[in-house]
Computed example of a mutant assay.
Amino acid sequence: MAASYELKASARDRVGKGAARTLRREGLLPAVIYGDKKPALPITIPLKETTITLHKGGFLTHIGVIDVDGKKHQVIAKDFQLHPVRDDIIHVDFLRVSKGATLTIEIPVHFLNEEDCPGIKKGGVLNIVRHTVEMTVPADNIPESLEIDLAKAQPGDSLHISAVNLPEGCQPTITDRDFTIATIAAPAGMKETDEDETEEEAEGEAE
């Protein structure tokens, strides 16, 4: 499993809000490494480097390495907290990732050929039901995104998970139905026209 980033860290023995504020004043960030049937490990990581890694994108879907006082831990970020006012990152939870592990993570959905979509060209609107899909994936084959091609989507179409070409070994956690990811909402004028045509057809049959 190739790591996409590496952060230097130190183990910490102080916890609580006061200790966290002190760390942040020193340019450090409280975090924790947990999972893999091992005790949780509270750590401090550099605020600047962690923020840069976060803003690169894919922070919650990329494998990383945390070097804790010389011992390297392979991890994936499971959650992070932001300051409610400043939007600064204030805490990160990392999950240990062992060789051959399977992870449950949210994979973002990307839509292709939106500018060529016939449904949108006819006045329809792309209505995204799910921006991400929770997937069970192998740790060594985490997809960057799920892709849905809109090149043939028409007004009124629903785009389901079955329309996605899933990477090998990856499965959605919802397995009991072909759930909707997005729809092409038909414009109001088209709906009215369709309804009028239906009524005229019904009247013609009645006559």
Rank of each mutant, 00 (worst) to 15 (best):
M1H: 08
A2Q: 15
Y5R: 13
A9D: 03
S10F: 09
A11L: 13
D13F: 13
R14D: 08
G16H: 11
A20H: 02
T22G: 12
R24D: 09
R25P: 04
L29G: 11
V32G: 07
I33P: 11
D36L: 12
D36G: 02
K37L: 11
A40D: 09
P46N: 08
K48N: 03
I52Q: 15
I52C: 00
L54N: 06
H55P: 01
T61E: 03
H62P: 00
H62C: 04
V65S: 01
D67T: 04
D67P: 06
D69K: 14
G70C: 09
G70T: 14
G70K: 12
G70D: 11
V75T: 04
K78P: 01
K78Y: 02
L82I: 04
V85N: 02
V85Y: 09
D87K: 15
I89S: 03
I90D: 02
H91V: 10
F94D: 06
F94V: 11
R96E: 12
I107F: 15
P108L: 13
V109G: 12
K121D: 02
I128A: 04
T132N: 13
V133A: 06
E134T: 15
M135T: 04
M135G: 06
M135D: 04
A139C: 05
D140F: 07
S145W: 07
S145D: 06
I148W: 07
D149T: 12
D157R: 07
S158P: 00
H160S: 05
S162Y: 07
A163F: 00
A163V: 01
V164D: 01
N165F: 08
P172Q: 12
I174Q: 13
D176N: 15
D178G: 10
A185F: 01
A186V: 04
G189D: 14
G189R: 07
T193Y: 02
D194W: 10
E199L: 09
E201K: 10
A202M: 05
E203C: 00
G204T: 01
E205V: 05
E207F: 00
E207M: 05
